[in-house]
Amino acid sequence: MYPWLVFIHSVSAMVSIGPFFVLIPMLRKLQTAEGELQASYLDSFHFVVRLSKHAGHVLVASGLLLMWLGKWHWSEPWIAGTFAVLFASLLFMARAFSPTIRKLRQPVSDRAALLRKLSRSLYLYLFVLFVMLWLMIMKPQLW
């Protein structure tokens, strides 16, 4: 059962991170998109955020099961660090994407600023996801 949980954990990590890379070229196209095209790009952003959120639920659940079955302790530096970054990323994700996407759907005067905020949020969130991935793979002894 443990190898299957590792597989599920790995796939859920890929599903949590991978779709965000599709959004990078979409950001450039979103700058000039209007009407239906803009709505479809924003729908794609919203879908990726929701997909990542739900894959994250599987990721956390499988990670907790792996900790329990593998006899890992909460005091392991890489586990404590991963959970600290995870909780920070949850707060960040809740405030970074959905409110900005909602504002972009409305007729706004400062669309460029909202797109910069969305872009900055995307790159920052990818960085945070890679920090968590690094912690899980490398298992560094931080203290």
Rank of each mutant, 00 (worst) to 15 (best):
M1D: 01
W78L: 04
K29E: 13
L122E: 00
H73Q: 15
L133H: 08
A55W: 01
R111I: 12
L37P: 05
V15C: 08
V108R: 04
V11I: 04
L37K: 15
P140T: 09
M132F: 07
H9T: 01
L86A: 12
G70R: 10
V11E: 03
S40Y: 14
L122D: 05
L126H: 07
P140K: 12
M14R: 01
M93I: 08
L69S: 12
M138A: 14
G81R: 10
P19V: 06
L122C: 02
L142F: 07
A33R: 11
P107R: 04
L114W: 00
L114F: 02
L51E: 13
R120L: 12
K29M: 14
G35H: 09
P25I: 05
I24H: 09
S16H: 10
A84S: 14
G56H: 01
A96V: 11
A13I: 15
H73F: 10
F21K: 03
Q31E: 13
A113S: 10
S44A: 12
L114D: 00
S52W: 00
R50L: 10
W78A: 06
W74T: 02
L129H: 07
F87D: 00
S89A: 15
L135Y: 02
L37M: 13
R105Q: 11
H54D: 11
R120Y: 09
V58A: 11
Y2N: 02
V6Q: 09
S62M: 03
R111S: 02
G18R: 04
P3F: 07
W68C: 02
F130I: 03
D43A: 15
S16R: 10
T100H: 04
A80H: 12
L27N: 09
V48E: 08
F97W: 06
S119D: 01
A61G: 11
V60S: 01
I17W: 05
Q38H: 08
L104W: 00
